[in-house]
Structure formats: structure tokens, C-alpha cells
Simulated assay, not measured.
Amino acid sequence: MHEVKGVVAKAVGEPVSLETILVPDPGPGEALVKVEACGVCHTDLHYREGGINDEFPFLLGHEAAGVVEAVGEGVTTVAPGDFVVLNWRAVCGECRACERGEPQYCFNTHNATQQMTLLDGTPLSPALGIGAFAEKTLVAAGQCTKVDPEARPAAVGLLGCGVMAGIGAAINTGNVGRGKSVAVIGCGGVGVAAIAGSALAGASTIIAVDIDPKKLEAAKRLGATHTVNSSETDAVEAIQALTGGFGADVVIDAVGRPETWKQAFYARDLAGTVVLVGVPTPDMELPDIPLLDFFSRGGALKSSWYGDCLPSRDFPMLVDLYQQGRLDLDAFVTEEIALDEVEAAFERMHHGDVLRSVVVFS
């Protein structure tokens, strides 16, 4: 049993606290990981606010990189000393998606079986089955993806959620390729990652849409060719004007609201693709759109789960591109913070002051 410090959300809306937690030695199929860096993702704030479920207390943190310290019985994919990025899609290899050769849609992903607890024995619910705002965490071995050990942990750990979700929404879900036009609505961490992914894939026109000038500037640094401040101009009209009057081939909604989804729907070209990667809340419903418009515009309306990624395939490739200087993951790291600064980072995130705060363990 390992006694370490971790960031815990104990009740809805309450500030998080730094607690001593107990992490078991790994059992069969599990791995103990010494965390080196973990990004502060909006999903962690959703957990704290009760927006995911009510299984408090939560051990927060999931965008992480670290070193495997020990493995349990039967683990052959990773070994002690391996530098890994953690993921929340440890594919099972047995469900109907895996059996038809589409493990990126695995419907039965694995987490660690044993529970991490507070000192008094209270079980903790790890965020996305990871719980990496902690000096060490216990995960299923399949949640560990080996990558280049020379890579910067604070940067590559972000592939564990938001950056991968955005890049994958463009490349995997939206099939963005050479010469295509793309519009991204919402330029937080996921949206800017979708812009970076579109640039990586060779899109010719990449339009960033947001109401915050600071976020639009960040989008330009990551590859946007045009920006639209939708607080000042109609986003649909602006996207059409920048694409010859037709609309973009792919429009990515990285906000996840009925209003932005409707903008995405009408801002795409005929036979174009809409990708929803922003996460709606349970009370949101589709906007009122005539059914004939769905039929007459053709194309595809897609949701992107984790960027439709396969960590074993995508993480090493993207880390290699980062190491080659072709994918600027460092640009997503606005600040490096200590473990006891997570609550303050949530406040900066709420005000849109950062792309990512990253907890770095000394």
C-alpha cells in the first residue's frame, strides 16, 4: 500500500482539497504509475460540479504522463520503468466493436479493479478511471501507452484527453485531409487542438470561431488561417463568405450547445460533415431544424468519442510528430503548477485565461 497526496472533490461545488490517499499495489492486469504531469481539464471541473455523476468523493485528474513503477500478474504490455501516457480507453478486445475490428469504439473499456481510498477507508472514484492528480495512481495496464521517454511529460500528457479529443475529431472523425476547408466553433483546449489537427492533415482553409479574442489569437498560433469573432458577426455567414459562399467541408462544434450545433449544421457545405466533440449537458436538446433540411443538405452528422482514437496507434505517432517539431504540444501548456494549486487553476479555466494548466510533480 502506498500513501500519497492527491486532489479530492468531496461534495458538489465545494473547493477541492489535498488529501492523503492510499494506493494499493497492482493486482492482476493492473499497473502502478508514478505521475509526472497531469493537465487540468474541464472534465475534472464537471466532476467537481456533479455534472458527470454523484459518486463522490472523486480523485480528480486524468490527462497524465508518468512512469510505470510496478505491474500486476499477467501484464505484458508495459513494464516497470516505461514512460507512458494514460488513457481512459483500455480496449477489452472482446466486445462487438473490438470483434469487428473497430477497437476505437470499444464498448467495454477496462479500469483498475482495486480501489484507491482515503485514509479512513472511504473509496475514491477516480476521474475517467484514472485519478492522476496524485503522486501515484492505480490503473488498468491497458490504460498505459508507451511513448518516447525523451518527450516532455507536461506536453504529451495532454494527449490523455483534450488534445487527443480535438486532433482526433478533425483527423479521425471528420476525415479532414489535404485541401479541405474546416471551421471550428469554440477555441478552448479541444477546439484549438482540432485546429492543430486540421493543419497537420493539410487543410487549406481553417476558420476559428469564438467570442474571446485571446482564444482566437491562440487558434492562429496553432494553424487557423482565418478567425471569426461571433460576438461581432454572424458565424454562419462569415464561414460561408470565407469558403466561396458554400460553407466548410467539415465543421467541428467544440462547445456542445444547441446554438453552436445549429451553427455548425448550417455552416457546412452540401454533403459536408458536422462533428460534435463538445460535451452537452443532459438537459440540452437538438435545435428546431426542419427535417427537410437534414435530407436536402446530405452529408454526415457525427459525434466524436475521445477523438475516435486508438491510444496504442495514435499516442506514439503524435508524440513522434511532437518530437520532430511538427506538432506543437508545448503551445497548449499555458502554465505549470503545483498539486495544491488545482482549485485556483479551475478559476482561471472558468475565466478563459488558459489553454491548459498542468500539474507537474517534482
Rank of each mutant, 00 (worst) to 15 (best):
H2F: 11
H2W: 09
K5A: 09
G6H: 06
G6T: 10
K10M: 12
G13P: 13
E19G: 03
I21N: 05
V23H: 08
P26V: 03
G27I: 11
P28V: 02
E36N: 03
C38S: 14
C41R: 01
G51R: 14
I52W: 05
N53D: 15
P57A: 02
A64P: 01
A65R: 12
A65N: 10
V67E: 13
G72L: 13
V78Q: 15
V78W: 15
A79L: 12
P80M: 14
G81C: 07
R89D: 03
V91W: 08
V91H: 10
C92Q: 06
E94T: 09
C95Q: 07
C98M: 05
C98K: 09
C106G: 10
H110R: 15
N111L: 01
A112F: 04
D120L: 12
G121L: 06
L128S: 01
G129A: 06
A132L: 11
T137A: 04
V139Y: 07
A140H: 15
C144Q: 06
K146I: 14
K146P: 08
A154L: 02
L158V: 00
G162R: 09
A169F: 01
A169M: 06
I171A: 08
G174A: 05
G177L: 04
I195N: 01
A199Y: 04
A201T: 09
G202E: 13
T205R: 14
T205M: 10
I206H: 07
V209F: 00
V209C: 01
D210K: 03
K214D: 15
E217M: 01
A218W: 15
L222F: 04
V228K: 02
N229F: 03
E232P: 08
E237D: 15
Q240I: 05
G245C: 04
G247K: 00
V250W: 01
V251G: 09
G256W: 05
G256D: 11
R257V: 13
Q263L: 00
Q263M: 10
A267E: 02
A267Y: 03
R268I: 01
L270G: 02
L270A: 09
T273P: 05
G278S: 12
M284Y: 13
D288A: 13
D293G: 02
S303M: 06
S303Q: 00
S304T: 06
D308I: 09
D308H: 14
L310W: 14
S312L: 11
F315M: 10
P316G: 09
D320M: 06
G325S: 03
L327D: 08
A331N: 02
E335C: 06
E336D: 07
L339V: 09
M349I: 08
M349W: 07
H351V: 05
D353F: 05
L355N: 03
S362G: 14
